[in-house]
Amino acid sequence: MAGDGDCRGGFASPPCYAGEIAPDYFDPLAVDAQQAGDVARWRKAERARLRRLRAGMSVGDRKRAGLALRGHLLTVLRERFGDMRGCVFSGYWPIKGEPDLRPMLEELHDAGVTVALPVVETKAAPLVFRRWKPELRMVRGDWNIPVPPPDAPIVVPDISLAPLVGWTEECYRLGYGGGYFDRTLAALDPKPFLIGVGFDAARLGTIYPQPHDVRLDLTVTEAGIRGRREGR
Rank of each mutant, 00 (worst) to 15 (best):
M1I: 07
G3Q: 09
D6N: 12
R8Y: 00
F11K: 02
A12F: 08
P14W: 00
C16I: 07
Y17A: 15
A18F: 03
P28W: 01
P28Y: 03
P28R: 08
V31I: 12
V31C: 07
D32C: 10
D32T: 10
Q34C: 07
Q34W: 08
V39Y: 02
A40V: 12
K44P: 04
A45E: 15
A45F: 03
R47F: 04
R54W: 02
R54D: 03
G56N: 14
V59I: 11
R62L: 10
K63R: 15
R70C: 11
T75D: 11
L77C: 08
V88M: 00
F89S: 05
K96L: 12
K96W: 07
G97V: 07
P99F: 03
E106G: 14
L108S: 01
L108M: 02
A111S: 14
V115E: 00
V119L: 04
V120G: 05
V120Q: 05
T122E: 10
K123A: 10
K123D: 07
K123T: 12
V128D: 00
R130P: 09
R130C: 02
R130T: 09
R131Q: 14
V139G: 06
W143E: 09
W143Q: 10
P153H: 04
V155W: 00
V155I: 04
D158Q: 10
I159Y: 00
S160H: 04
S160M: 07
L164E: 01
V165A: 03
G166C: 08
T168Y: 03
R173Q: 08
G175V: 09
G178K: 05
G179C: 03
F181W: 10
A186P: 13
A186C: 11
A187G: 06
P190I: 04
L194C: 13
I195K: 04
V197N: 03
V197Q: 05
G198N: 03
A201K: 11
L204K: 03
Y208Q: 13
Y208F: 12
P209S: 02
Q210K: 07
D217M: 05
D217F: 03
V220W: 00
R226S: 13
G227I: 08
E230N: 13
G231N: 13
R232Q: 12
R232V: 15
R232K: 13
